[in-house]
């Protein structure tokens, strides 16, 4: 089974082709360049390099959120277009879950964190001691302080991944003895991990049609969504 996967959910962008559990090809860039300019050339290069035609793909996967507003739309629009054109199934992967697949075979809890700004993160927790990451909570948006108090209840090693990992590590390393920062090479979302997460969804029959594929934005808690400073008068 051939899975094509794409990720444009944050600053980096990547595409990968995984066939029966083997990464046949993967392109990853982490520059300030715009995904709308880099994604399709990477897709083209990937298919040419691995000598596979898009029509031979069994499932197209994409990280659907959480993530950047524009970034998610670029990746999803591209996958929507390809699956519409070739009439293929899609797998909508949680960005946070995909990152848990960067780390397997560790007896630990993966704490996936993406920077949502203003001391908030998008987060989910996964136990990775088994064959596949076991989800411990739904994807959510919360204050870093709130996350710290939740993590106090975990005795296992906790490994931080995601673009909020550095930020969280700085805040948590003093307070939590069992917190670790993942290595740079496995810290960020990768399309190959998206493909592995998609494989599990495909096995469970959790697949979508092109038109069902949508971004999954997470809402911040009400208190954090207040834009106006209390003292400031809105004089418009």
């Amino acid at each position: 089974m051939k899975i094509f996967a794409a990720d444009t959910s944050a600053k980096s962008a990547s595409v990968a082709l995984v066939e029966n559990g083997v990464i046949k090809g993967e392109y990853f860039i982490n520059t300030m360049l715009t995904h709308s300019e880099t994604l399709m050339p990477m897709v083209d290069l990937l298919f040419k390099s691995v000598r596979v035609q898009p029509k031979d793909i069994d499932c197209f996967a994409v990280n659907c959120g959480p993530g950047s507003f524009t970034g998610l739309r670029i990746g999803i629009a591209a996958v929507k277009g390809m699956t519409f054109a070739f009439d293929k199934p899609c797998a909508a992967v949680s960005t946070l879950e995909s990152m848990a697949y960067n780390l397997t075979a560790e007896n630990a809890v993966v704490c996936a964190v993406m920077d949502a700004r203003c001391s908030q993160v998008y987060n989910a927790l996964f136990d990775i001691s088994g064959n596949e990451p076991l989800r411990l909570c739904e994807d959510r948006a919360l204050q870093i302080d709130q996350l710290i108090s939740e993590l106090r209840n975990i005795d296992k090693r906790i490994i931080l991944v995601g673009d909020g990992a550095n930020l969280c590590f700085e805040r948590m390393s003093q307070e939590l003895e069992n917190i670790e920062l993942s290595n740079e090479n496995v810290r960020y979302q990768r399309a190959s991990s998206t493909a592995f997460a998609a494989e599990k969804l495909f096995e469970k029959g959790e697949i979508l049609t092109s038109s069902q594929l949508m971004p999954r934005y997470l809402r911040l808690p009400q208190a954090q969504r207040e834009l106006l400073a209390k003292k400031s008068l809105n004089n418009k």
Partner: peptide, 9 residues
């Protein structure tokens, strides 16, 4: 412009 509207962000 009009930063008043998004001051907390």
């Amino acid at each position: 412009e009009w930063s008043e509207n998004i001051e907390n962000a």
